[in-house]
Each structure stands twice: as C-alpha cells, then as structure tokens.
Amino acid sequence: MIGQAIADGILTGAIIALGAIGISLSLQILRFANFGHGDILTLGAYSALTFTAVATAGVPIGPVSFGWQFLVAILIAAIVAGSAAILIDAIVYNRLRSRNAHRLTMIFASFGVALVLRNLVLLIWGPDVHYYSRELQIAVEILPNVRVMPDQIVVLGLTFAVVIFFYLVLRLTRIGMAMRAMAESPTLAGICGVEIRKMIRIAWFIAGALAAMAGTFLGLTVQLRPEMGFNLLLAVFAAAILGGSGSLFGAVIGGLLVGLAENLSVLVVPAGYKTAMPFLLLMLVLYIRPYGLFGTPERH
C-alpha cells in the first residue's frame, strides 16, 4: 500500500515537475505567475491527439501502448504549444509589459487567457473524453505489491531525459547563460547586450513546450479532457514555489514532493482532501522559508 502510493507519487510527480519548470521560468524570467499555464498544457495534449488521429500513434513497441510515431506527436505538441505561448505573449503580455503594467495585472490577464484557451479547446475538440489509445495497459508488478504501467516507466524516463537536456542547455549554451542573466536582472542583462525580447520569446517557447509534454504524458497515462490542465494548476504552482522559483532541480523535486504528498495523504486523511495537499505543503514550506526550499531570498 505505502509502496504503491510512493510509486504513484513519483509517477504523477514527474508530470507535475514538467509543468512546474514552465511556471518556474515564467516566475523568474517573465516575472509573473501564469495562471494560463495549465491550459497551454491542455492545448499541447490535444494537439498531439489531432496528430495521432490524422496520422497514427504507431504500432505499439513491446509492452508500451504506442509506437515511435508518438514521439513525433509529442514533438508537434511541443511546437504547437510553444508557438501558441509566443503568440499569446505577442498579443497580450507584451503589450502589458510595454505599458509597464504591474506584474499582478499580468496575472490577471493570464486568468482571462486561461478561460479563452480552455473554451477554445472545448469548442474545437468537444467536451468528451479522449484517449491516445483505447488499449488498456495492465500494470506490471515491479516490486512486491508495487505495480506500474509500462507507459509510466517510459514517461518517467522521458521526463528525466528532458530535464537533463534542459539543464545542459541552461548551463552550457549562450542562450542558457543569457537566460540566467535575465533571471538575475533584466536591466543589467539588457545593458550587457542580451536581446531581452528574443529571450522572452525563448522562455515562453520552452515553458509552452514543456507544458505540452506534461500534457501528452498526462493524456497518455490517464486521459484527455478540456479541464485537465486547469485542474492540475494548483499542484504545478505548489511544485514550482516549493522548489524555489527559478531553480530547475528545485522544480523537479517540488513536483515529486507534491506528487508524493497527494498520494500518501489518502493513507491518513479522507481522499476528498487530496487536492488541498499540495497547497498545505506549500503553506508549510513558505512559512519556514518564504522563498521556497531551493530558492534564494529576493529583494522586492
């Protein structure tokens, strides 16, 4: 029981972590809490659905429910969601920024964007539940009384691959360096010749692409529905802040902690309170460390 809960916690936590990296980026580089992030995740998941419906999810490889074509679908989802994020920035957030709007105004704009996106998905794909593949996977017992589905293992592996790749990009490339500089101080970075607007676009693209991956993974291991991203939002926020905004591995660990908290909580409190767990964990941490577990104090 407890073993299974831990395994499930890690598996859901990995998906939350992917979403949390994007939130963390927007907190750090774009400097606002993006409430529209969950719906970008949904948009990504549905883009992959359209691809698999038009093309195919491929012939299942081994015990996994999809073929290599699904990787193409994930890639397309990432590109669609990343581009959508850039487009939304150009239409909405960029205008607000150029007016020097308060960053809390940006948060509020993201509320509106979220509502629009969620209902666009509803309008285009309808309210019904979708699956990439109707085939049901039977979980394999990997440890005594701990069962996981093959797809989940692949998802976990892909998640860690993406995180490591992204870490290397941030550490080793010029873009990564520029982004870190921007996170420290946009003004200073600008003076040093960092193209702020280009960096903002890149940050949006990465956030959107990672959200899309989280969405497709969630769709693959559970199902697709128009509110899927919005319903994950609190968990994703909690993970991002738990880890300390701007810290990549912080976001990953935050995601895992949130996943574990949710799944372990049902052992002690009624399952009805599960959704509140990430948040309670967050409040607890913020009370002790107002800048998150791995963040550094920031001056206003």
Binding site: Q4, A5, D8, N231, V266, A271
Partner: peptide, 20 residues
C-alpha cells in the same frame, strides 16, 4: 470506501485505498 472529487487528473490514490 473512498470519496473522490470530480475531474482529478488521476484516481490512483483512491483506487489504492480500495485495493488495499
């Protein structure tokens, strides 16, 4: 017995309560 809230991304936790 496990009560669940609607529209969760996953119900593995509730299912585990039942299976246990």
């Amino acid at each position: 017995e496990a009560a669940f809230n609607e529209n969760q991304p996953s119900y593995r936790a509730e299912v585990n309560v039942g299976l246990a």
